[in-house]
Amino acid sequence: MSEFFHALASQDFLQTAFIGGLLASIACGVMGSYVVVKHMSFLAGGIAHAVLGGMGVAYFFGKSPISGAIAAALVAAWVIGWVSLRWRQTADTIIAALWSVGMAVGVIFISMTPGYNVDLMSYLFGNILMIPRTDLYIMASLDGLIMLTVLVFYQQFLAVCFDEEFARLRGLPVDFFYLLLLTLVALTVVVLIQVVGLILVIALLTLPAAIAAQYLRRLAPIMALATILGMFFTSGGLALSYTPDLPAGATIILVAGTVYLLSLLVTGLARRRRC
């Protein structure tokens, strides 16, 4: 572990990775809380996997994958949002279709790109150590955008998540806020993919908020605690993975998963004792 801190002090790429983890935690704590309380993890998973399509296309045309990811995430979020507002019953199937079709498009475009396809693995499982410094600025501005929007529309989002029908009856443009919420989830997914890749993104999005929701009963504190937990998981996972040279993204998820399981045990035991 001390080896990690030495390296952190001197190595540029490690600092970038560390900051990237912290930046990702902000988006993940705030939007992950919405995903957990509104039970949208399948939907977020659909967005995350569809993103590979956009990354593949961008990669093929020699553009930066993150721009392709942003475009694909937004399109996927709006399609999924629109479908689930119109046809609630079949939304499930359509999300699943988008999930795999997006990945299929991505794989095909990546395979058509000449050269050695080393990037596919890092899209799927992330490579926090390879984050370009410029991506940090994109991540930071996405964080800023997410936080500002949530700050402005906190009450509206709360109402839409809690009781959509009542919000509609009070004259709130529920469809608009629902799509806006999904848009923010999509941007969060893009930020998190830089860290853990699109396969593992759902775990990082939901686990910190799910742990926080076990102890807190208000949304804003859950967001704050989830952000702190996310920071702990990303930097802890990064540190743990350094010396044995494990994949950082997977280590981060294992740390998060372990803490979640322990937390489930603790709250379960506490509840049993109370009964």
Partner: peptide, 25 residues
């Protein structure tokens, strides 16, 4: 009509009756 484990207080629920009037910031 809604999930009972939703993290919201009784007071916040009642305030939602005033939704039409809520400010941005």
């Amino acid at each position: 009509a809604f999930p009972h484990d939703f993290p919201i207080s009784a007071g916040e629920v009642v305030l939602q009756g005033r939704l039409g009037n809520v400010r941005l910031f």
